[in-house]
Computed example of a mutant assay.
Amino acid sequence: MNPNKALWEKGDFTRIAATMRESGEALVDSFGITKGLKVLDLGCGDGTTALPAAALGADVLGVDIAKNLVEAGNRRAREHKLSNCTFQEGDASNLEQLEDKSFDLVVSIFGAMFAPKPFDVANEMVRVTRHGGRIIMGNWIPNDPTLVAQILKISAAYTPPPPEGFVSPMTWGVEDEVTLRFTAAGVPKHNISFARDTFNFNYPGPPSRFVGDFRSYYGPTMNAFAAAEGSGRADELQTALEALFDSQNTSPSQDITRIPATFLRVTVVRE
């Protein structure tokens, strides 16, 4: 199996996505969605941004490599009676099933950044965007002090080194790298812009229990714990993550977790 597919079909990312709904809706509100806009949500998960876009009147196709997340997205769309939102399996590195210039807006929030072959990913996003259309990405930033970058950094210390040729998904949070990828896909540099933004995780329980959900349901953290258990360091990893979540929790209640995480917002205009 494709290792990226295996990673995201592992566990149940919908459990983590449930904590991201509020910020997903707020982010989509800033996209300027209009009725009938054709939107591709790439690496869509179970629809954290796809469903809000459809609720605003866009015709949305969500594409994700994980079969279980595609099924969950289609189920959520039916539950919300959003017939203008559908999900299908696909690889962000090769969108061969999608026609050139077929979308007004291509969105990828913490999705396509995890696909291999980043230059292919950028090329495919540009290819399926119509002239005058936009691409909007949300990407975690390497070494950022906030939650997700730190989870991945801590987890990396417990896992074997990646295979030769591996390109870290966190490079999508480096402006120069993003510019290089999109200019190679034919986008003029002046059509690429960046901003720092914040995404909040809202969890109905204490930080330690939220760590438990990452350990049980989030593929990268599950892999880190599997490796840590093999070396007798699982308790050490658990302690490090609990300290991180505790320190970043901004909720005044000990029984509720609210953690802001900084990300790089990328906007590309297709000429």
Rank of each mutant, 00 (worst) to 15 (best):
C44T: 06
R209G: 12
I65S: 04
A184P: 05
I16K: 08
L98V: 02
V128S: 03
T221S: 09
T171E: 15
S168K: 05
V187N: 02
D246Y: 01
A77R: 08
F182G: 03
R258S: 14
K35E: 15
E9H: 01
F119D: 15
P252F: 00
S30V: 03
N143T: 01
I192Y: 02
T257R: 04
V148C: 13
D197T: 09
D64L: 10
A53V: 02
T262P: 01
F194V: 07
A149C: 05
V266I: 13
R78M: 09
G11P: 09
G138Y: 00
D100Q: 06
R270W: 01
V266F: 06
V39W: 01
N68Y: 04
L244P: 08
P252I: 04
A58N: 01
P3C: 08
E79I: 07
M137A: 12
K189L: 13
R258V: 13
K5L: 03
G205N: 07
L40R: 12
G32F: 02
T34L: 07
R75Q: 13
S208A: 15
N94Q: 09
A77W: 06
R76W: 05
A261N: 13
E9F: 04
S208H: 12
G62H: 09
T159D: 10
R270M: 11
G32L: 00
N223S: 13
E271W: 01
G205S: 11
P188G: 03
L264K: 01
A72E: 04
F110Q: 15
E22C: 07
D235R: 09
G186T: 01
R75Y: 03
H190K: 13
N68Q: 10
E164L: 12
F166A: 14
E96D: 15
T250E: 15
S253A: 09
S23H: 07
T183F: 06
A55E: 12
Q248F: 01
V126M: 02
D12V: 08
N123R: 15
P116S: 11
P206C: 04
H190G: 06
K81C: 12
